[in-house]
Structures are given as structure tokens and as C-alpha cells.
């Protein structure tokens, strides 16, 4: 009785997600099978409802895989695809390496300090993403803050703005809170007596860490890795502002196809390819979150 009542609460959010999330994806899929056209909106075919069923049939006959074939023939798309996955993968690895010691360090602190530190990690996330990436331009540009600092130390200047290094730096910087928080959540919940037991049995602190703490924190590492990898693979702002023209990532390709080239079918097809690649990580992430909920 009560169960079915509270089930009703799901109706509005489900309708919302159906209209604004699920249905639009079908439109993207449909458009990826269409062709570009000099029209407004710039694609064909469109359903001619006035001709009824006949109109729908003509429309369906007009759909083909030509756009995907076009993507396959052009090296640019394959390169963008591979470099998106590579950069997101490398950045995820770096985030694990950098985020783990921070999360672990926070979990070692006294409770009051822990709360304040978690807050300190979250706070930058609340300040504008665009602005934080923009701040790096002023730091990394040839006459920027970094080179002024290097110069003051008598070190040679570096020119990394508009390179892949800058993109990686930006990715790690922007997504660090998303890596630290899930890691901290599992490390904080860990039962300290397990470590004590290991040490009572003669384990050194280091081996107790590697054989008890670390394996038990892997679920947090997986959550953090997925939470970072998936959006990073489709990232637009960071490669666009910090990367050079040669840094191709799919998010940027979709943006360019759409806004600069007005090639909506190509943008849609790239989006579908990106989505197909991310489906498995997304499902993994959902399964993991459901386990946390249960």
C-alpha cells in the first residue's frame, strides 16, 4: 500500500527524464543517420506529416549510414577518438596517483580537521569551472606566472600552453575533487582495528597499508576513476582553452562540427560513437552506485 504510493513519486522525475534525456538521445541517433542539407534546420530527410504513412516511409528510406562511413574514411575522427581515450585514461591514472595520498592523508586527521579539509577540497569545485581553467591560461602562457617564477629561480622558461601537457594538467586540476571524495569516503569508513590486528600479527605499517588498507579502498578508486574518466572523455572546455589546435578530443570535434561546420549529422554521429564507447563505463558506474545505495 505505502510502497505503491511512494512509487508515484517516481512519475514526475521519470517523465522529465523521458522527455529531456531519453527522447533527445533518440533524436541524436536519428540525426546521425540523416544527411546534411542546406536548410533550416540543416539536415534531411524530415518527416512530412501531411503525407501520413507515406511520408514516414519516405523518411525512413532516406536514412543511411553514410555519415558513419564518412567518419570512418577521415583520419581526423579516428585520431580524435583515440586521443580522447588516451588523454582521459592518462589523466585518470594521474588523478589516482595524486588523489590517493590526499584522500588518505585527510582520513588520518582528527575528525574536526577532516570535515574542514573535505570542505576545502569541495570548495574549488563550487567556483566556476570555466574561470578555474581560464586562470591556468594566465599561469601557463609564455609571459605568464609560471615562467616568471621559473625565471626568478634561474630556471629555463617552458612553453606548455596549447600542448597536451597543459590539457592533462587542466584535466587533473579540474577533476581532482571528484577523485579525492570517493576515495576519502571508503578510507574514512575503514575499520581501524583491521590495521591494528595486522600490526599485532607483526606487519610493518607499510605492509599493513599495502595488504589491508589499499585492497579495501579499491572500490573508492574504481568509483573515482569512473566518475572522472567518463566526463573527461567528452571534455570540451579544457582541450579548447588549454590545448593547441593539434589536441583533438571528441567533445571538441562535436562542438566544431556543430557550431563551425554546421554539420549536424556528423556531430550527432560522433556523439553516438562517444556514447557507445562510454556505455560500458557508465553501466559499471551505475552498478557500483546501486551497491552503495543498497
Amino acid at each position: 500500500m505505502r510502497r505503491s504510493r511512494t512509487g508515484l513519486a517516481a512519475v514526475v522525475p521519470l517523465l522529465w527524464l523521458a522527455v529531456f534525456f531519453a527522447f533527445p538521445f533518440m533524436l541524436v541517433a536519428k540525426l546521425s543517420l540523416s544527411d546534411t542539407a542546406l536548410a533550416i534546420p540543416p539536415y534531411a530527410p524530415r518527416i512530412d506529416w501531411s503525407r501520413g504513412l507515406e511520408g514516414v516511409r519516405t523518411f525512413l528510406q532516406g536514412l543511411d549510414l553514410e555519415t558513419y562511413a564518412r567518419l570512418g574514411r577521415d583520419r581526423l575522427y579516428l585520431d580524435a577518438y583515440l586521443s580522447s581515450l588516451r588523454l582521459a585514461g592518462v589523466a585518470t591514472g594521474l588523478l589516482l596517483l595524486i588523489g590517493y595520498p590526499i584522500a588518505y592523508g585527510i582520513s588520518r586527521c582528527p575528525p574536526k580537521a577532516r570535515q574542514a579539509l573535505v570542505m576545502a577540497v569541495i570548495l574549488p569545485f563550487w567556483t566556476s569551472f570555466l574561470i578555474r581553467i581560464y586562470a591556468w591560461i594566465a599561469i601557463l602562457k609564455p609571459a605568464g606566472v609560471l615562467n616568471a617564477a621559473l625565471g626568478a629561480l634561474g630556471l629555463p622558461a617552458v612553453d606548455i600552453l596549447n600542448t597536451e601537457t597543459a590539457v592533462l594538467l587542466g584535466l587533473v586540476y579540474a577533476y581532482l575533487p571528484f577523485m579525492v571524495l570517493p576515495l576519502y569516503a571508503v578510507l574514512d569508513r575503514q575499520d581501524e582495528s583491521l590495521i591494528e590486528a595486522a600490526q599485532d600479527l607483526g606487519a610493518t605499517p607499510l605492509s599493513a597499508f599495502w595488504r589491508v588498507t589499499f585492497p579495501l579502498s579499491l572500490s573508492g578508486a574504481a568509483a573515482g576513476a569512473l566518475l572522472c574518466f567518463i566526463p573527461m572523455a567528452g571534455e570540451f572546455v579544457i582541450p579548447d582553452l588549454l590545448g593547441g589546435s593539434e589536441t583533438l578530443m571528441l567533445g571538441r570535434v562535436i562542438w566544431t562540427e556543430f557550431f563551425a561546420n554546421r554539420d549536424w549529422p556528423a556531430a550527432s554521429a560522433v556523439a553516438i560513437v562517444l556514447l557507445a564507447t562510454l556505455v560500458i563505463p557508465i553501466l559499471l558506474f551505475e552498478r557500483q552506485q546501486r551497491k552503495v545505495l543498497a
Binding site: F23, L27, G234, A271, F285
Partner: peptide, 22 residues
């Protein structure tokens, strides 16, 4: 739950494009 977690991690470019088409 599927819809909620999918939106949470969906690259914004895809979400933006699909909403525009809607």
C-alpha cells in the same frame, strides 16, 4: 536510478546536442 546516474556522468557536449535537437 539508471536515468539519474547516466545524466550525472554524461559528457555535457552530448547532453547539450541532444537537448538542442529536442
Amino acid at each position: 536510478a539508471g536515468g539519474v546516474y547516466a545524466t550525472l556522468v554524461m559528457p555535457e557536449v552530448i547532453l547539450g546536442l541532444s537537448l538542442l535537437l529536442l
